[in-house]
Design a protein around this nucleic acid. Structure first.
Lengths: 192, 192
DNA sequence: TGAAGTCCTGCACGATCGGTCAGCCTACTG
DNA sequence: CAGTAGGCTGACCGATCGTGCAGGACTTCA
């Protein structure tokens, strides 16, 4: 029995091209032809490596999903403010490293529900959400979490879409750490 | 000379179906056939009303773009904290009313650059961005604006994607007003 | 009654979609 | 040298894409 979906050999540029396309125009909107062109190979080669478009999506998102798991594990015992900030920095770095995959999950995830990778990732994010807004959390915390995650995901992909000059990634990272801290940690008691 | 693109007659459900599809799977991913099915008509009827897929996108996004202009005008003289909050409430209401169109602009705008409506909307958002982060604004403010806008847009479309129970829109609105205020108005001086 | 106009549809088109398959080329193994 | 396995490709398939077009159903007006 040969392996059903050939594991990625020298197909890294293919995965990057696929991620770019999926993030830009969505899974349905992306075509294997364009992905192949962008990676400098033929459409047949793409299907040779991954067997199907859905397998390509799985392979492209897999690293982001797998890297999210240890992050959740590290969230176990966080009490003092120092370890909170350390976790935030690690989380922002994760979002940056996998920004294209995260953008696909956030922006196109709802339309892709049912695909194995998407459901898996959604479960992890749901877990992250309930961990960051624990106990008898208010809807307020859930909304703030959503704004933080989707906002960060957007900025990391289109940081300077409406700015005059490109934004330096280092500064974006610092600001995001601050903003996420404000949004999901140590919120001041609501006025009401 | 007959009108080139017939103006929308009783085609409101068509525009709603189109917006839903565009927001869900993007412009390229959405098919006229599915939009037509969802609106209960034939694909030919869609093209009868709007002439082309691109014209349909234009018609679907037009109200959101047009309603954004008076909002920008109202941003002219805002000084005291009261009018700031009033503007924020009006802005959140705008985002909610046009949440599907806003989602299309935020999530798929980059891929749709070149289309007239998109460029027009982008110019308006750029204007909004520079007005809210005025004078010698830091990159910091631009990032915070991006997080606020994209985060709000996401929550208004997928508020309860990772929450156990659906979130009441009234409460989402209140929280968003608070959050947007924290992110784009009266930011405390950065620690550095 | 018939001409005109509006709304809608089925059919047909070329292009492109995801996917299958036979076969070419290179490299390694005996 | 022959054999074989892996990487890659073009030709091709049926389905679906956006679009053009002719015409049917219904209303309005002369």
């Amino acid at each position: 029995m040969q392996d059903f979906t050939r594991s990625a050999g020298g197909s890294a540029p293919l995965l990057e091209a696929a991620l770019r396309q999926f993030a830009a125009v969505g899974f349905d909107g992306a075509s294997l032809q364009r992905i192949a062109d962008e990676a400098g190979m033929s459409k047949s080669s793409v299907l040779y490596h991954f067997g199907s478009k859905e397998s390509l999506l799985d392979a492209a998102l897999r690293p982001a999903v797998d890297d999210l798991r240890p992050l959740l594990a590290a969230l176990g015992g966080i009490a003092d403010e120092g370890s909170q900030r350390a976790f935030l920095e690690r989380f922002v770095d994760y979002l940056y490293e996998h920004r294209l995959a995260v953008a696909v999950l956030i922006n196109h995830g709802q339309a892709l529900a049912g695909h194995a990778v998407i459901d898996e990732a959604d479960a992890l994010v749901r877990d992250l959400s309930t961990r960051l807004t624990p106990a008898g959390s208010h809807d307020r915390d859930t909304v703030r979490f959503g704004v933080a995650l989707a906002g960060a995901a957007f900025v990391l992909v289109a940081a300077d879409r409406w700015s005059a000059a490109p934004l330096p990634p280092v500064e974006v990272r610092a600001v995001l750490v601050d903003v996420l801290g404000e949004l999901v940690l140590a919120q001041p008691a609501p006025s009401a």
